[in-house]
Design a protein around this nucleic acid. Structure first.
Lengths: 157, 157
DNA sequence: TAAATAAGTCAATTCGCTTGACTATAATGA
DNA sequence: TCATTATAGTCAAGCGAATTGACTTATTTA
């Protein structure tokens, strides 16, 4: 083993901690603003729905889970008023899942909270450092041997 | 919504992706080296056990789960030969969970794989950038409003 | 030394997800 | 054209990793 303060995998841990720090703060704030019933993955769903909605299968692919699991998530979000299922405009097998007004509110709050978080980081590190970190992180991710290098996949544990 | 290429939460996503990239590569490599039966969280267990072992409750606290859940994890790792339960030297209620030789091997392989990953990043970005990123990330994490700022907690999703 | 606390296990349950089977609709091709 | 194949979604059963609650045994405290 190496020095406990700086083992060779510290950077990897720091990535996870930084992510979790931001997500924890986001959801603590969301709860205070009346959105205590959304999980981190739901934000990822909303992001996909924002543009023009999505079918269940598109959502499942986006989330990296089965269509059945995605459907359960949609059930939950529908029951909590964040999304609704509409008949698909061109495919009568399918349904189009779209955000409700409440869903849009949640997105706007999320945007505002993330803006606050990143602007705090910006105050701390400076604009230049933030931008460089963004680029460096992209390079790290792209350098991975993994099949699909620059698509978001949820954290594993 | 903002520009899809650079929304204000991109950095947060990048943290998660970088973490996942490294963890995926670690476990792909571990599998090739005969450690296909360990999950990401197990590495976090090993890290805690390495110093001097731990009791079930200490492990549970480290992992952020209940002692019952931790006990199940220990069952699994014991059955797969990574750890063993010994009578606690001073407390006859407790047991001391310690790494076996196989567990130590897994730690050494993990160290070696992380060293390779981070050295690849170092080739990509340079030593100076890596060190700055490390420090900047620590500052970001420490700046968090969360209760326990600089302790690792597993990713949420 | 009785009462409160702590370590660990057993049992039942929950939660988020999976696989498998199915219906309804759509696309394909001899 | 219409039989075949593929696709969207749902229902049902089950699984894995966690939870809560109840309990035994040992330790600490008042």
């Amino acid at each position: 083993m190496q020095d406990a303060k700086s083992p060779n995998y510290e950077l990897t841990l720091l990535f996870s901690m930084a992510f979790r720090t931001a997500i924890d703060e986001l959801h603590a704030e969301l709860e205070q603003r009346g959105f205590g019933d959304v999980r981190p993955s739901h934000g990822f769903v909303f992001q996909r729905l924002a543009a023009q909605g999505a079918t269940g299968i598109e959502l499942a692919q986006h989330m990296g889970i089965t269509k059945q699991a995605a459907s359960l998530t949609v059930d939950y979000l529908e029951q909590h008023g964040y999304v609704k299922r509409e008949p698909h405009p061109t495919d009568r097998r399918g349904k189009l899942i779209v955000l409700t007004a409440h869903g849009w509110e949640c997105i706007r709050e999320t945007e505002s909270i993330f803006t606050a978080i990143e602007s705090r980081w910006r105050d701390l590190l400076g604009e230049e450092t933030m931008e460089k970190m963004r680029l460096d992180l992209r390079r790290i991710i792209q350098s991975s041997k993994a099949a699909n290098p620059y698509s978001f996949r949820p954290p594993v544990w």
